[in-house]
Amino acid sequence: MTEIGTETAVRAAVALDKVTKRYGRGRAAVEALRGVSLELPAGSFTAIMGPSGSGKSTFLHCAAGLDRPTSGQVLLEGTDLAELREARLTRLRRDRIGFVFQSFNLVPSLTAGQNIALPQRLARRRADKEWTREVVDRVGLSGRLGHRPGELSGGQQQRVAIARALVAKPAVVFADEPTGALDLATGRDILTLLRAVVDAWRQTLVMVTHDPAAAAYADRVLFLADGTIVDTMERPEAARIADRMTSLGA
């Protein structure tokens, strides 16, 4: 079975060093992140949790290079993202980073198969057909590749998005509330799939969520409140997570 994260086993997949993100100026300024520092090892499944306004999405955007922090460093496989110009960041997004959003993940005019192959198309690279087939099988989409997003259910759309993220064999996959728009049963299927992908292929996965049940699938849960990491838990159960969340929100 092919492993994704072997070369990066030595380095941390994502590392943040005293990252601060401030919006606005002067007295109206809002600090979404305050001096966040952490390392996410390769092959780990990390969940970021916190109440709304805690800075979860900002954290994800900074870690993935979508936004530049006001101060501090973000390293992806040892590369400082702040040093990269737009063109190289684009290539990074294409080749080394995968995204799964809550919704609106897919290009509506392309079929599922075309959406999955999109990053390769943009890179003008030939797709690895063996690998693509393996990913599609793992994700459970065989037979639906010719359909457009409008013809797929929510769960199927998320599977397509995950397949697209995985096909490029990225260093990290970032997921922003991937099960937020799905019902319980479908959501559980997606999370099981994500867990399996991490286990089988040593894929690094960072997932932002507000659902304790979803976070329970992760290796580690980080709790964000008011822009800082206030707590971590290793291999927790949903109940413990829920308790911790309530005390955070207070």
């Binding site: 979508l66 737009e86 063109a87 684009t90 290539r91 997004r93 294409r94 080749d95 995204f99 609106f104 993940n105 897919l106 290009v107 999109l118 990053p119 943009l122 890179a123 697209r164």
Partner: peptide, 10 residues
């Protein structure tokens, strides 16, 4: 915007 996030250059 999605295209750009997936890795399409400007």
């Amino acid at each position: 915007a999605l295209l750009r996030l997936v890795g399409a250059s400007r």
